[in-house]
Design a protein around this nucleic acid. Structure first.
Lengths: 248, 248
DNA sequence: TTCGTACGTTGTATATTGTACAAAGTACGT
DNA sequence: ACGTACTTTGTACAATATACAACGTACGAA
């Protein structure tokens, strides 16, 4: 048996905190984890997360594809690093005003982030890994809920609930945008194509309420779905829902 | 120029409503769209959506891979068909009781569906294509909001908001399950591996609230995240949020 | 100063994906 | 009876993540 070296594959958490042991042997590294992550974010912002392939990213960095695996154990870890980097640098508007204003600000900061980086809304899990960015974000956002008489567990519940709403709203908005782009069809074209079939098949006798309400919603929003309206409406509802917990 | 036949690639909407023109020429079809969709659902239920590849599905059906393209124009359309089929067959508990009870029932029916078919929660868009299943579902669910004094647009807003919450809750729950399975790590093992680093890096002076609240939440749920609790908590908040719209 | 070895870099290779294309075969309508 | 529309299928291709091994570099010990 050959005494092969134990490959010290860095753990995601170590990587997030940049707690990988420094090595001195061997050639100098031509890149840093931060550079790789920054390039990946730039690429995802410009062309979407599906453009962030190992080959393409390496090309962008002027290296051979496999080189990246020196910096990042795999693609999943790279995405986590991208997210944490976003969280690290995102806006943290200082908390002020009523609890409702403070939470609305938290929601808007998040919505703005996810709208600016649509790939992040799709990639972000409900519980992101505990990197420095996520921790700073969590710390900041909890401030909006401090001193309201909630238990610690309720603070976490409330924040998780609010953030899940925002992520979903942003994700749906991004998806709505993407569909419009991908299909390359305007709403008018869509109706020209599909209207006849729908008219035949959407029997008002069978779906009376659906036809009535669907039509009203479509006309009101001037589209099948209006993400910005959904966010505004949903944010009010979400804050109202939290008020019964907070103003108990 | 050869007079090639215009390939009558069926539109998704035509396919959803099974409104594809019947052909008589040529060999008899060995399958039906319904059989393909049913097999795909069974496969996704058993092994996840990532197991539903064209090759695997064809094998399951005893056909060559490319045969499936006779029935379905591509994989995206197949997934839409799978979803609509699920919606068609899902539980529709009759509406009764207060508006709150009715909406809670709608939410639970949806949550049950998505928990039984985790791939569907991940694949379902905010606005599913207008297939027969989706229409029947929409019609049914709107009943819970009928007669409450809401405008048609508000009915749609409210339902969309409620369903987005449920989808997200189910998606997060499925992801939480998947992570546990994929990592193959129990919570204890995770802490053994990552505890030391976290202890060093999660400075209570830098993240006082985060450390305090995070620890409390973790202990209360006996895990980093408790999806079922999040659903119960969130459903109450969501209904409270809608109450300010409905009981105005 | 020399040299072994740990480690960065990279070319090659593999398994898997969706699906385009064309050949082959089938059965209906004329 | 026969042409042709349509099903079925084999082959092929581009793209993916990443395993593996060869190669070269430069530090640390001698």
């Amino acid at each position: 048996m050959r005494a092969t070296t134990e490959s010290p594959r860095p753990n995601l958490l170590e990587l997030l905190w940049r707690a990988t042991p420094e090595t001195s042997r061997g050639p100098r590294k031509g890149l840093t984890v931060d550079e790789v992550v920054a390039a990946a974010i730039a690429l995802a912002d410009a062309e979407g997360l599906e453009a962030v392939t190992v080959r393409r990213l390496a090309q962008e960095l002027g290296k051979a594809p496999m080189t990246l695996y020196t910096y990042v154990p795999g693609k999943a870890e790279l995405v986590s690093l991208m997210l944490d980097s976003l969280f690290e640098g995102m806006a943290r508007t200082p908390a002020q005003g009523s609890w409702r204003e403070r939470l609305a600000t938290v929601a808007r900061d998040n919505y703005t982030l996810y709208r600016a980086h649509p790939w992040a809304a799709a990639a972000s899990p409900n519980r992101p890994p505990l990197g420095p960015g996520q921790c700073a974000k969590y710390e900041h956002e909890l401030q909006a809920l401090e001193g309201l008489g909630l238990s610690d567990v309720e603070m976490d519940d409330a924040l998780t609930y609010l953030l899940a709403f925002v992520r979903t709203a942003a994700r749906d908005a991004a998806q709505s945008d993407a569909e419009r782009e991908t299909s390359g069809m305007s709403d008018e074209e869509w109706w020209e194509t599909n209207g006849p079939l729908l008219a035949r098949v959407l029997d008002p006798a069978r779906f009376p309420t659906a036809v009535r309400v669907g039509q009203a919603a479509g006309e009101a929003h001037d589209a099948a779905y209006n993400p910005e309206h959904a966010f505004v409406f949903g944010l009010e509802r979400t804050l109202d829902g939290l008020s019964t917990l907070i103003e108990r």
